[in-house]
């Protein structure tokens, strides 16, 4: 067979259909996620027929809004190869401050609440970007510090109201248009639009992806990488604050465990949505779907009424399965 190259056989693809379907899905991961979401909604509706109603949808969205916003913080950071394990403590702290300041009026409560995210986000950013502390360590330690600080402050400077003001309760848990559309979903939609714009249509967004893929190349391109990292942690901190304030408004009263349960889901929503923990790959659209999927899943497990322990196991298992299935698909691409 030395001389003439063999003519290429026209490929008779075996198992072509399955492979092509997989390839199609890998090309458009959002399609697959939307499909999974639809199936979950139908299954939940099968378990509890009342779920397929306006109030069912509203409840799911009410749950999904704070989660989606916290997962937005993770998405931004994960794109740079970072993560924020203190995001739920930022959320809790912000809600705590907002509740404490509620007697001063909603505007002051919100501003001071967001200030918590600004300050903590900046500290995280400086630690990671300037002092080059590993983001896992930095934010985990920050989470511990915040818990300690707020526990102490709850007895001293933050003594007083633990009730959210009426405006914040409305914002976090209220709805309009005949009790159909939650206000928190409107806030989430605005934030989502802002994040998608930032990631797709700004230089800052381009740099987030670029840093996550190869920091050295970005540095040699004349970018001060630390500036991008610090701003990313600040944005994440502010998102954590907003998520926390909405969550606090929904529950009405705040305590120091307010957002604890959201840490794993906030990372999981981003991962399920296709954002890589290693950076450079992903986007917020997927995260939105991830947050919705997790919220529906939560409702389903509640309706199944199987008990807290089994709920936890099933929840963790499904998160793993989704992440694993997604990784398999994208690796093939």
């Amino acid at each position: 067979m030395s001389q003439a190259p063999l003519p290429a056989q026209p490929a008779a693809e075996p198992a072509g259909l399955a492979a092509r379907a997989a390839a199609r899905v890998a090309e458009h991961p959002t399609l697959a996620l939307t499909g999974i979401l639809a199936i979950l909604v139908l299954v939940t509706g099968f378990v509890e027929p009342n779920y397929l109603s306006v109030s069912g949808a509203r409840n799911t969205l009410l749950q999904a809004a704070p989660l989606g916003i916290l997962a937005g913080a993770q998405t931004i950071l994960m794109l740079t190869g970072g993560i924020d394990l203190s995001v739920t403590m930022i959320a809790t702290g912000s809600a705590y401050v907002a509740a404490n300041q509620s007697p001063e009026g909603a505007a002051i409560a919100i501003l001071l609440g967001i200030l918590v995210g600004l300050v903590v986000g900046s500290a995280n950013g400086v630690g990671v970007a300037v002092f080059r502390v590993n983001p896992l360590i930095m934010t985990l330690a920050m989470s511990g510090i915040l818990l300690g600080l707020f526990t102490a402050w709850a007895q001293t400077i933050l003594q007083g109201s633990t009730q959210m003001g009426p405006f914040l309760k409305l914002l976090g848990g209220g709805s309009f248009l005949g009790n159909r559309v939650p206000y928190s979903v409107v806030v989430w939609a605005l934030i989502a639009a802002g994040l998608i714009w930032l990631l797709r249509r700004t230089g800052w967004g381009r740099l987030l992806y670029a840093i996550g893929d190869n920091e050295i190349a970005v540095r040699l391109a004349g970018v001060r990488v630390w500036q991008v990292r610090i701003t990313a942690y600040i944005v994440a901190g502010v998102l954590g604050s907003i998520g926390g304030i909405l969550l606090g408004g929904r529950t009405g009263a705040v305590d120091l465990q307010l957002a604890n349960a959201f840490l794993l889901p906030s990372v999981a929503a981003a991962v399920i949505g296709g954002t890589s923990i290693f950076g450079g790959v992903g986007g917020y659209t997927g995260t939105i779907l991830g947050a919705l999927i997790l919220s529906v899943l939560n409702s389903m497990l509640t309706f199944l009424n199987v008990g807290q322990a089994i709920q936890q196991v099933v929840y963790g298992g499904i998160v793993l399965a989704l992440a694993w299935g997604y990784a398999g698909l994208t690796r093939r691409a």
Partner: peptide, 8 residues
């Protein structure tokens, strides 16, 4: 490799 974003 110092100038490229390999996955983008």
């Amino acid at each position: 490799l110092l100038a490229l974003l390999p996955n983008l």
